[in-house]
Design a protein around this nucleic acid. Structure first.
Length: 802
DNA sequence: AGCACGCCGACT
DNA sequence: GTCGGCGTGCTC
């Protein structure tokens, strides 16, 4: 029997199956999807069996055998293998990358170099001997000191030791030892009678066991509470009255208890949407629904009902949310409705916790998964519904290889299982809405709020005007008044700072120099907590200079508007306010996010101040004011989606106000209030924005009218970076039709990161059947030639930002 | 990717 | 003469 294996080596020449002989004893266990360890070249690597045959073209003297089967059950289903093939083609990645993407990281291998002693320890040089006292194989890293490495090198040469790479298994199943009472009562009675009367403790123990037939107990519990000591337990095991078993333990990622909830009364609109979806489910038809519903229109209740329908059909459901570690409330709603049937999957879980959740799905112990992007690969085998909430979010697109979009994967799986996909959003991606308009997706609209609360009032304040009338503070008069009013009424406030591209930097007021990172072409950010300057791209740190590095002036100080700056400003203007600040600094710790939100929910603060991360999912009844400090920072990004992103963001933050009985108010501060993205966000209706933005996309040939591909090239040498980027342009130009537009090469918006200069080309096309093949060819040239010359190139189909 | 093989300059 | 630089080529 021959197994075709994709090996865990991401490199161009080995991105294909390799044939391996299957050892006899594994024949009944090896299947497509099995995870194996195989000899490859001069070392062992992990691999995935993608198919099993009887034939091979490999000469039998060249063929090696699988050395270990790593799991009793295959970890990948046939569907996943198929999906990986598709993804490899779609995103132009290595097949191994696609396969790995479908598994929790615990099932990916780690490799460790070890040093193995081949001779008598006493034969070794004295400095090495000490490491081999217990084992003949020890980690290589023990030798990583200058002097030892030299000795080691010599020892390798004289074949006294050898260096081996071993595959480390990381997926640890957590288990606990328990005492299990024999399941047969008559057997216990028999043992009880047979036992001599002198064994008083054992007799008592068996009597107790007879009342707990087949049950499992912690040894500690038996000893402390039932007074069956460890030695008696041991005796019972010898008698066969019980045995010790390793019980698998799931690490429990939930901290809170579930309070069950029940289905809510649906509005007419919700009912219409739900009916359309369940109809397709009953017909077993694939269909993509775009559920366009304003904030508060009850999209979630539609999801919950549709999921219930899938469960009633005996099927499973996958729900994607942008990043649920940020929106615990969303998860809670699913858990409240479906209880123990729900698995969660997000970046806040440890590797082990993710693995446990994954296994629950694989074994069919749960039927619903609520998770971030990677949860789209849930190892279910009978999916009845797939949902992407906030489908416009860019977090659904993976930013590094494999650059898949969860939306595309969802639609693929929908086709595979012949089931519907729901894309839900208040501000759909332009692409999605355009598809819905064309009838590719089925549009479902929710126009009314589920509870009859009014929409918040939205006011846009012109900050230029404020400046002209002498207000130099970062709070406009309107916002300051509104804040004061809420503080008096003991209502809550959310202040949103769109920090991207506009944080605190250090500027010399004499010569205008801004302190830049030495490795990246970007201003460094001032961090008050550590009194340091940090580069947000490479993480480099510097002390805050006391004099200007250029002109030695002492008038150098930090500038700009970071959350920390605003926080201290708030304390100055509103000394009585209690503020919770949420940004990368205050939420780095595990669970910090949830804790801060809980604190705010419990009214321990008046103002929640934060960046992007507070835009989502906040739902507290006492929030009646949302302030956007500066709406236009995201508007000025050099990206054709800047307006769309700004609109989405403003709509989303506005949705945080007045979700319950109290009337909400939103104040947006802007230096460019006449921009359509801001004006139309104020109106709170999507269609006018859609129409306006579509006109612009059409005029400049951008999506959804054209597709785009972004190719980035970087090199340590500016000239070479530019040179290879123009080679890209040339190659594409020669091999594609003259219908394509190629923009560039241009310097990337951050022209240098980690000392590498970056150039990019943007390809715009409508219909280009050759495209994938041409790009594949280009990648081949890169991987076989350019890579050696220090070039890094990435190809991103449908990039989320440029 | 990672590693061995193999062919030319600066050391004992 | 040997050690070691990294170009080249292979991995079932």
């Amino acid at each position: 029997m021959i197994a075709q294996v994709i090996v865990d080596v991401a490199a161009y020449p080995v991105d294909r199956p390799f044939d391996y002989e299957v050892p006899k004893q594994m024949e009944s266990l090896i299947e497509p999807g099995s995870r194996v360890k195989v000899p490859f070249g001069h070392r062992d690597v992990l691999g995935f069996v993608i198919s099993v045959t009887e034939e091979t073209e490999i000469a039998s003297n060249k063929m090696k055998s699988i050395s270990t089967l790593l799991d009793l059950e295959p970890v990948l289903t046939e569907e996943m293998l198929e999906m990986a093939k598709w993804m490899t083609k779609q995103t132009l990645c290595y097949e191994i990358d696609a396969l790995q993407a479908m598994l929790p990281s615990a099932l990916r291998a780690k490799y460790e170099k070890q040093v193995e002693c081949l001779v008598e320890v006493s034969m070794l040089p004295p400095s090495l001997q000490a490491h081999f006292t217990k084992k003949m194989r020890v980690p290589y890293k023990l030798f990583e000191t200058e002097a030892l490495l030299l000795e080691l090198k010599k020892a390798v040469k004289s074949k006294q030791v050898q260096i081996v790479t071993v595959v480390k298994q990381q997926g640890r199943i957590k288990s606990i030892r328990k005492f299990e009472v024999h399941a047969d009562l008559t057997f216990l009675q028999q043992k009880h009678e047979e036992l001599s009367n002198r064994a008083r403790k054992q007799k008592q123990a068996i009597e107790w066991c007879m009342e707990h037939v087949g049950e499992r107990f912690l040894p500690q519990y038996l000893a402390d509470e039932i007074f069956i000591s460890a030695s008696v337990q041991k005796a019972l095991v010898e008698l066969g009255v019980g045995k010790f078993v390793e019980e698998e333990l799931y690490r429990d990622p939930f901290t809170q208890e579930i309070t069950p909830s029940y289905a809510l009364q649906l509005t007419d609109e919700q009912q219409v949407a739900l009916d359309a979806i369940t109809e397709k489910m009953n017909e077993q038809q694939p269909e993509t629904f775009l559920l366009h519903g304003i904030t508060g229109s009850g999209k979630t209740e539609v999801y919950l009902r549709a999921i219930q329908h899938a469960l009633d059909q005996g099927k499973e459901a996958v729900v994607l949310v942008p990043e649920i570690s940020l929106t615990p409330m969303m998860t809670e709603r699913f858990r409240a409705r479906f209880g123990e049937l729900v698995a969660v999957m997000h970046s806040g879980l440890s590797q082990g916790e993710k693995y446990d959740e994954w296994r629950k799905m694989q074994r069919g112990e749960v039927k619903v998964v609520v998770g971030a992007r990677s949860a789209i690969f849930a190892p279910f085998t009978n999916i009845g519904l797939l949902i992407l909430d906030e489908e416009h979010e860019t977090t659904y697109k993976q930013e590094d290889t494999p650059r898949y979009h969860a939306r595309d994967v969802a639609i693929w799986r929908g086709m595979h299982y012949q089931c519907p996909v729901i894309l839900g959003s208040a501000t759909p991606a332009l692409e999605s809405f355009a598809r819905a308009q064309k009838g590719v997706y089925h549009l479902l609209t929710l126009k009314q709020r589920a509870k009859t609360q009014a929409l918040p009032t939205v006011q846009v304040v012109d900050m230029r005007e404020e400046l002209h009338t002498g207000n130099r503070s970062m709070f406009s008069r309107a916002l300051a008044d509104a804040i004061r009013e809420r503080l008096e009424k003991k209502e809550q406030i959310v202040l949103f700072l769109n920090r991207r591209g506009f944080s605190s930097f250090v500027l010399c007021r004499d010569c205008g120099t801004v302190v830049q990172c030495d490795n990246c072409d970007i201003s460094m950010t001032y961090h008050r907590s550590s009194e340091k300057l940090k580069c947000h791209y490479c993480g480099d740190e510097k002390p805050v200079p006391t004099e200007c590095p250029e002109c030695q002036s002492e008038h150098i100080r930090f500038f700009g508007t970071g959350t920390q700056k605003i926080e201290s400003e708030i304390y100055k203007v509103f000394p009585e306010a209690r503020v919770i600040r949420m940004d990368v600094d205050t939420t780095r710790q595990k669970g910090a996010h949830e804790r801060l939100l809980n604190d705010f929910g419990e009214g321990k603060a008046d103002i929640l101040l934060g960046t992007q991360m507070i835009a989502k999912g906040l739902d507290f009844p006492r929030i009646t004011l949302v302030g956007v400090m500066s709406a236009d920072t995201s508007l000025r990004l050099p990206d054709f989606r800047a307006a769309e992103k700004t609109y989405q963001l403003l709509t989303q933050v506005s949705g945080r106000a007045g979700r319950h009985e109290l009337q909400g108010e939103v104040i947006i501060q802007s230096y460019e209030p006449e921009h359509y993205a801001i004006e139309l966000a104020k109106e709170q209706i999507f269609e006018p924005f859609y129409e306006q933005e579509m006109r612009i996309r059409h005029r400049f040939s951008y999506p959804p009218y054209y597709y785009v591909v972004l190719i980035q090239v970087s090199h340590e040498d500016v000239m070479l970076a530019a040179e290879y980027a123009s080679l890209v342009h040339e190659y594409i130009g020669q091999h594609l039709s003259n219908q394509v537009q190629i923009i560039g090469p241009t310097a990337a918006s951050i022209s240098r990161i980690q000392n590498r200069y970056r150039y990019q080309c943007l390809i715009k096309y409508k219909r280009e059947p050759q495209l994938h093949d041409v790009l594949k060819q280009l990648i081949k040239i890169y991987r076989t030639d350019w890579m050696k010359k220090g070039v890094l190139m990435t190809v991103d189909l449908d990039p989320t930002s440029i």
